[in-house]
């Protein structure tokens, strides 16, 4: 895999790569992708894909209101909070 491919992928994944990381990760990703090519040996065209091994249907909860909010704790877990707002750098 050339490094430009890796940079496109990193951009999509919101990951910043230093030059040193680019070198080692390009090699490591390429090694795995080459290894994935082994799957081409197995004839699977007629098989349906498995998304979950055993799951046959969704499990749904009843649509009822319950007093089970962890909202305050969840907001407090944010690294930067003002009142009940989570603070981020300026968008514009």
């Amino acid at each position: 895999m050339d490094t430009s491919e890796l940079h496109v992928t990193a951009e999509l994944a919101h990951i910043e790569l230093t030059d040193a990381e680019t070198a080692t990760l390009a090699e490591a990703v390429a090694q795995m992708v080459d290894y994935f090519a082994r799957m081409q040996e197995l004839p699977v065209d007629d098989l349906p894909p498995t998304t979950h091994a055993l799951l046959t249907r969704n499990r749904l909860r009843t649509d009822t209101v319950r007093p089970d909010s962890k909202a305050d704790e969840l907001i407090e877990a944010a690294p930067d909070v003002e009142d009940r707002f989570i603070v981020i750098p300026n968008v514009l």
Binding site: I15, L25, V33
Partner: peptide
């Protein structure tokens, strides 16, 4: 993400994104 993730996690995220 750069500061928070180690090399193995970055590798798998990149691989999965690819």
């Amino acid at each position: 993400r750069d500061q928070g993730f180690g090399p193995e996690v970055k590798l798998r995220i990149l691989l999965g994104t690819y």
